[in-house]
Every structure is written in C-alpha cells, then in structure tokens.
Nucleic acid binder design. Structure first.
Lengths: 161, 161
DNA sequence: AGATAGATGCGAAGGGTTTGCAGGTAGATA
DNA sequence: TATCTACCTGCAAACCCTTCGCATCTATCT
C-alpha cells in the first residue's frame, strides 16, 4: 500500500480551491466535504478512496467511509475530480486527483511505481483533433501509459513497487 | 447490462488467431483456453469478465468463472489482450479486447453507449513522442475519451445507455 | 506410455463499494 | 434569528467482482 509518487506538472497558481469551486456550483458544504476537498487539493501523491479515508480520519475520527465514497462520486460526477487507475500497476484501486486547469497525461513506471505527468498544449489539443476528424465531442479524456521511466531503464536493479 | 457497441477499426486481415499466438508463445493450450480465445477473437462488442463467462458457458457448461478470470489475467499479462474500463460509463466493469496490430483509441459516448475506435499512425506515434520528450519507454498505452458522439450531439433525444 | 508441471472446478473468502435507514445539519425563508 | 426542509451523515449490512486453496485432472515432454 505504498503511495504512488507523482511528478506533477506545474500547478496553475491562483486557481480557486476545490472547496470554493464546489460552493460556486451550489454544492452544499458540510464539514466533511470541506475536509475532503482540502485533502484532495493538497495531496502530494495519488490517493485512492481508502487513503483519503485514512487521512480524513486523522482530523475527524468520526468521518465514515461511506461519506468518502459518496463525496468522491459526487466530485467525479461534477467533473471536479478525475478518477484514474494508473494502468492497474498497483492493484485495482482507483485514484483521484483534482482536475487541473491544464490537461496532463499519466506515465506509470511498472518498476518503481512513480508517475510522471507531463502536460501542455499538445495533449490539450488531442480533444480538438478528435473533434475535427470524427465529430466526437469529448468532455473527459484520459491518457495513460505503462512502461519504464528513464531511470529504471538505466538501472536494471528492481527497486520494488 | 446492455452490450457496449463498438465501431471497430479495420482489422488487419490475415492476422493469426489469438489461440495461435498463445501457442506460439508456449502457452499451454487447454480446451477452455481455446474456447475463450475464440470468443475474444470474434467478439463484436466489448466484453467484461462476466459476459465472457456467460458466452463460454453456452458452449461448455462446466467451465468455471475462476478459469475465465485466470485466463483473462494471463492474456493481459502476456500483452495479448488489453483491459479497458471505457471511462466507467457503464459501471465499474473491466472490458477486454484482443490487442490489435494497430493501436486505436476509445471514444465512449455517454448518451448512446457506443464506442468509436479510430486508429492509425498518429496514435501509434504518441508513444514515440513521449519517449523522445521524456525518456519514458511505454509498453502499454490507453487513450479514452468520454463525451458525445456526432449523432447524439445532433439528436437531443436521450436514447438510453 | 509415463512423468510432471501446470490447469481446472469448486466453494469459500477477500476487498472494495454501495445501500437503506434513522437522525442530524446547511442553507433558504420569513 | 427562528423555522423549515431537503439534503447529508454515520452505521452496518449487503453487494459485486475477483481471488484463493485445494484436490483432481491433463497437456506436453521424455
């Protein structure tokens, strides 16, 4: 159950917090939701539901698993959070991340478990390309690759996942 | 539990069957594995484990769920079959498809449930691009988009999933 | 044909997620 | 500010999909 390390793309500074964006959408804010939103906003690695739950419990021992699941589902439905499975390199868990302002892809190293997340214009424009060429209007997009990151290619010693 | 319709890309003709490719890799061939390989090869829609099991049972009532799961896992590990979740538009199930010779992406329509699968050089080369730019060597890749297909954009009447 | 690593059927267990309900609370209203 | 109501939460059981351990069977090699 080791955390999946991220190599996150530069965050857009001055982006409103997840809690603020929830409120702006008229989502009813409870203490639990504020807590969960803050945890997701500040996560340094990819969190699955259980990890979110454990983190939340440190600050509010009464929070319940079901609330975590319900909130994650809500945020996903609202498009505020994306659900990933990171090519299932570390089991069948689903991971959650706040949807960033600039789209990025996920490169999951099967050797070290690290996740690189390059972002930028090129990836953003794939949706546009698909639109032009097929007429499909994408609202959500997910691009994941599994393989070996640069350092694991050069270092044949397995370092565990 | 309606089947997820595919709009598959042109199949490379004369491609060896999945069963043949299994044998070529030295995978021990049992009657069950031959049956499952044939089902996957000829599937006209995306199948999850349960659907594969149900189809298999029509031809061999003694086949067991566990065998289906074990075989799918084997094929996935061997890179002969890809596991998809199609943006979870129809639940948390995982779908399986024989890995095609030419990579394609999955465009999942949230209105009609159809899956368009455009393929071609451009998508193939994304791995190469990532390699050049980040050093990451991708072995598996998955690109899925969720949204509205062309006809569902033009036809506001919901047609169910 | 005989030997054996490996596959299968079986049923139970496992892990993650959802649900129904009773009680509690945010946010609207006056 | 007090009241109201729709909505949220905690709880525990249920649910679903997937895996496991074990005894038996079999594909493949000699």
């Amino acid at each position: 159950m080791r955390p999946i390390r991220r190599t996150p793309p530069p965050r857009a500074a001055g982006q409103p917090s997840l809690a603020d964006r929830m409120r702006d959408r008229g989502i009813r804010m409870t203490a639990q939701r504020r807590l969960l939103a803050e945890l997701l906003d500040n996560a340094r690695e990819h969190l699955d539901a259980e990890s979110v739950y454990r983190l939340a419990q440190r600050r509010d021992a009464t929070i319940h698993r079901a609330t975590v699941y319900r909130t994650l589902k809500l945020l996903k439905r609202q498009g505020l959070v994306d659900e990933l499975d990171l090519m299932h390199v570390a089991g069948e868990r689903h991971y959650y991340e706040v949807r960033p302002s600039v789209f990025h892809i996920h490169l999951v190293c099967t050797a070290c478990g690290g996740v690189h997340e390059p972002g930028g214009r090129f990836w953003e424009e794939l949706k546009e390309k698909v639109r032009r060429e097929t007429g499909f209007r994408a609202e959500v997009m997910r691009l994941e690759m599994g393989g070996l990151c640069e350092s694991c290619q050069n270092d044949p010693i397995p370092r565990g996942v």
